[in-house]
Design a protein around this nucleic acid. Structure first.
Length: 419
DNA sequence: TCTGGGGTCCTATTCCTA
DNA sequence: TCTGTAGGAATAGGACCC
């Protein structure tokens, strides 16, 4: 999708159409999550600090994200995809790979299917999609980039919409691109390749793997060299289990005391476990991420002998992990995430058969039921209730509380809050 | 310029155990 | 009993993606 979040916002509020629009936090530590092509003309890009975006485009309109809304639009698109093929691999809310190998007898050749899907997304959802068609996943992805509109003074100049790279054209197409275009080449890898004199994919392709490996390591070198020759046999995988679930938050001002840090950690643990339990998962490893005022970032992790979804157990582990961390320099961001995930039902059954069930299990179940019925803000850890200001509604910020229309919001809606 | 939040994957090191 | 070693798990950090 083109400028997905910004396009959805403009669709919902016509007064935002054809204007430089930025979706993201406009606070001092906000970044651009998505922006309209009108904003891009001024040099605004996603992931750019909002302060800089404002400087580049003072007339830009900032809106905070509505993640729940984007999810709804995403689902509508997926329903369209499903009418063509069950082999859909979501990359994000607004991108997916579709394998149409087996359905061309039914719907026609892949480029025709691409046009049909694009038209239906335009007519039924109201959004502009760009589609790349190719015989490998990564060329399809690059082709979709080539299909996108370009930013210009009076709004976007339409792109080709559908960009087809046939198998015999793939090498020429690839070799003309900058290495940075390759999936997996970011700023750090691009710098290293530049020091080998490599700017274009074609130059990378002609370099011996050994030489690339001297700079990037064997695995990455092999992988990128393969991609440069269009050797990519990764299949479209339609269902994938999450490997980790977590939450992190950047604070408007650095936290200076361990009490403040502890209070935030309690909230992050609760939010993470709440989501993990909704996903019917339990985790064995907890990782705490700490970013200091100077942007130095460390992680500390601890692993349990068996997976758990009990707040007290996880919090204790978090406290152990944090024991040796000095926060007096100021903490800018905290994160908590769980990995080594296992199905919650199996974990609880195991606990039952081993006779280690305690009051926690039924307590957690009761909390789940109350939250299902009255909202996530209805039960909160005691240290965050009361006159300190972090009461039930502040709890979890807007992300976990009810919205005006009574629905649960998730994810980036949190940008509405100032923290 | 001053850097979000959700993730995945890879690598290096350390520690434990067979 | 001591030592070397190989492999796996845990831990930490970094790059990258949207």
């Amino acid at each position: 999708l083109d400028a997905f979040y910004a396009s959805v916002e403009a669709l919902e509020d016509p007064s935002l159409r054809n204007k430089p629009l930025i979706v993201g936090g406009d606070g001092r530590r906000g970044v651009v999550a998505s922006c309209s092509y009108e904003a891009r003309f001024f040099g605004v890009r996603s992931a750019m600090p909002s302060v800089r975006a404002k400087r580049l485009c003072p007339q830009a309109i900032f809106v905070s994200g509505h993640y729940d809304l984007y999810e709804q639009y995403s689902k509508r698109m997926h329903r369209i995809f499903q009418t063509y093929t069950p082999d859909i691999e979501p990359i994000s809310l607004d991108e997916a790979f579709l394998d149409v190998t087996g359905v061309q007898r039914l719907f026609g050749p892949a480029p025709k299917i691409a046009h049909m899907i694009r038209e239906r997304i335009r007519d039924e959802v109201g959004l502009v999609a760009s589609v790349g068609v190719a015989t490998t996943k990564h060329v399809a992805k690059l082709a979709s980039e080539a299909a996108k509109p370009k930013a210009a003074k009076n709004g976007p100049v339409p792109g080709r919409g559908v960009f087809v790279v046939r198998e015999h054209e793939a090498i020429d197409f690839l070799h003309s691109l900058p290495v940075r275009a390759l999936w997996g080449v970011g700023p750090a890898t691009a710098d290293r390749l530049a020091s080998l004199g490599v700017e274009k994919v074609g130059q990378l392709a002609k370099l011996p793997v050994k030489v690339i490996a001297s700079s990037l390591g064997q695995s990455a070198a092999r992988h990128l060299h393969d991609l440069a020759w269009n050797r990519d046999d990764r299949p479209v995988v339609s269902s994938r289990e999450a490997k980790s679930i977590g939450h992190e938050q950047t604070f408007p001002y650095d936290l200076k005391t361990s009490e403040e840090v502890h209070a935030k950690l309690i909230r992050l643990v609760d939010a993470t476990i709440n989501r993990m339990r909704k996903a019917k998962s339990a985790g064995r490893t907890v990782t705490v991420k700490i970013r200091f005022g100077d942007f130095r970032t460390i992680t500390r992790s601890k692993t349990l002998p068996a997976a758990s979804a009990h707040p007290q157990t996880i919090l204790k582990l978090v406290e152990e992990a944090m024991a040796a961390v000095d926060v007096t320099d100021g903490v800018r961001l905290l994160g908590v995430s769980m990995s080594n995930l296992e199905p919650l039902i199996e974990v609880e059954q195991m606990a039952l058969t081993e006779g280690v069930v305690d009051a926690d299990t039924s307590l957690d179940d009761a909390i789940d039921r109350i939250r299902d019925r009255f909202g996530d803000g209805s039960v909160v850890p005691a240290p965050l209730v009361g006159p300190s200001g972090e009461g039930a509604f502040k709890w979890g910020e807007r992300q976990w509380g009810p919205t005006e229309n009574g629905e649960q919001t998730t994810g980036r809606a949190r940008r509405d809050e100032t923290g």
